[in-house]
Design a protein around this nucleic acid. Structure first.
Length: 486
RNA sequence: CGGGGCGUGGCGCAGUUCGGUAGCGCGCCUGCUUUGGGAGCAGGAGGUCCCCGGUUCGAAUCCGGGCGCCCCGACCA
């Protein structure tokens, strides 16, 4: 940030651009503790919008919120073998409290499967108690070596859904249902298209039978794992004695699922829509969808335009639009324009003496496509009446652009490792190939290309023509998608 | 955990080579003039120079030790 005005352009250094834009849009800042962040009101406002939308969707699919504690007995984490192996390296552990060393160390939750299923074990006796469909909004901690605001911090905010079912089939259905909820949310709210699919064994959640993922393409063409949904099978129920008596009177282990998305989604939004001016917030997530900037020269003019600005705000609020009036007197309009553009507000309404006289406003759109006017001079009434629709159009335009970009950088039908390497070292993007299912092949591709197997795509995302050749040679059993990832 | 960079008013930095009154830009405060793309002028406030120790008449600067943060590579939502 040598210059205190312009951002590093994305093409010069995407990573530097990201770091700058997150801070200069006042989304978040580094806290004094390494790897942890402060989420500032503008960033938290976006997260709150995400939370509300997701929460509604969880409720609509029959889930209830609950809260489980931050501290988990170390022995709980150690119960499930894969789980402990996956999380041990990144655990933060409380060893002392009340001035004494604890008999058993307490882990600050990296995720809550263990504590939750141990409690479900107490609450579930009969098939009549199933399914259990809960979600919690919480903070979790994973001690990361390398951190970046929103994308990877030691502490982050998320939701984790945890369910228990009587049958495997029901658990699988739930796993896919929630994956679909995520996909819908990401597309309709963040305007961030995703590829959904199954994780390979090496990439799946520690303790899951199957992990499904939503993979989004960022503007630097790297993949961001934006959300995951796990079919946990009976792995945890067996370790925590989560059993129930079936209709037939047999004691059986319950089938579990868990699914989560985190504040990482804010980072995904930034890297999907941001430009060299700043971030772009999709209207449905924007804490302010419209900012009204009054413009005046003389004190006599001020009163009129500021009053009009507030009037316009009230009319827009009546139509369900979130509006801010920026009537700060110590900044000139240009400074305000830059600030709100940096913060990604979808529309700006300028109202000055000339507009007042003509009963019009100047409506400025944060991003435009080829041939589209950035500014519109509209009669007041028309601007107010049209803004709800214009916001929706803006929202879907963002999705269209992001989707088109992803398609441009998706490479299908790749058959050789050389070609795969060439794409990943060059333009980058999502590369679709065949795979035998052999972990050794996956490992080799990983070593040679620095890319990972992001997922085995769901039918919606598979190529028209199924690959016949495995990327490692021999016959393909399934199509897979590779990319360099965050 | 390896490599690199950096710790100096709120922020960004210069000053460190070669020790000698702690500076610049932005921001902040007051006033006036401004305000349709990052305002101008005038006045002003604000500092344990990351910490500890050493050398010296004198240390931001030299020496030793520590701490912290950021960035780049192996693990992860």
């Amino acid at each position: 940030m040598a210059d205190d005005k312009a951002l590093t352009p994305r093409d010069d250094d995407f990573s530097a651009w990201y770091n700058e834009v997150v801070q200069r849009a006042e989304l978040a800042d580094h806290s004094p503790v390494r790897g942890s962040m402060v989420i500032r009101p503008w960033g938290y406002g976006i997260w709150e919008r995400m939370q509300r939308a997701l929460d509604d969707m969880f409720k609509a699919t029959g889930h209830e919120n609950a809260y489980f504690p931050l501290l988990i007995p170390m022995s709980f984490i150690e119960r499930e073998k894969e789980h402990v192996e996956g999380f041990k390296p990144e655990l933060a552990v409380v060893t002392h409290a009340g001035g004494k060393e604890l008999e058993e160390p307490l882990v600050i939750r990296p995720t809550s499967e263990t504590i939750i299923y141990s409690m479900y074990a107490k609450w579930v006796q009969s098939y009549r108690d199933l399914p259990v469909l809960m979600n919690q909004w919480a903070n979790v901690m994973r001690w990361e070596l390398r951190t970046r605001l929103f994308l990877r911090t030691s502490e982050f905010l998320w939701q984790e859904g945890h369910t228990a079912h009587a049958t495997d089939a029901e658990a699988q259905e739930e796993t896919l249902r929630m994956l679909d909820v995520y996909r819908t949310f990401m597309e309709e709210w963040i305007a961030m298209p995703v590829v959904t699919g199954l994780k390979s064994d090496s990439e799946k959640f520690a303790g899951a039978v199957r992990t499904y993922t939503c993979e989004a393409m960022m503007q630097d063409r790297r993949a961001l794992q934006a959300g995951t949904s796990h079919n946990l099978g009976q792995n945890f129920s067996k370790q925590f004695g989560l059993t129930f008596q079936s209709e037939e009177g047999r004691e059986e282990y319950a089938w579990n699922t868990s699914w989560g998305v985190s504040t990482r989604l804010v980072g995904g939004m930034v890297m999907t829509h941001g430009d060299d001016t700043g971030i772009v917030v999709p209207p449905r997530l924007a804490p302010a969808q419209v900012v009204v900037v009054p413009i005046y020269r003389k004190e006599e003019e001020r009163e009129g335009v500021v009053a009009k600005a507030h009037l316009l705000r009230d009319q827009l609020v009546d139509r369900g639009v979130r509006v801010r009036v920026d009537d700060r007197d110590h900044l000139n309009p240009g400074a305000k324009f830059y600030e709100w553009e940096r913060k990604g507000v979808p529309f700006r309404l300028e109202i000055g003496p000339r507009d007042l006289a003509k009963e019009q406003v100047v409506l400025v759109k944060r991003v435009t496509t080829e041939g589209e006017d950035r500014k519109a001079f509209l009669p007041e009434g028309q601007a107010v009446a049209e803004l709800p629709d214009r916001l929706e159009a803006f929202q879907s335009q963002l999705l269209d652009v992001a989707r088109a970009r992803r398609e441009t950088h998706s490479h299908r039908g790749v058959e050789s490792l050389d070609e795969l390497k060439e794409i990943l070292d060059g333009p980058g993007g999502f590369v679709y190939t065949g795979w035998s299912g052999d972990p050794a092949v996956e490992e080799r591709v990983k070593d040679e290309t620095k890319a990972t197997l992001r997922c085995i795509p769901d039918p919606d995302f598979r190529s028209e023509k199924a690959p016949t050749r495995c990327i490692g040679g021999g016959e393909s059993k399934m199509e897979v998608m590779w990319a360099k990832a965050y």
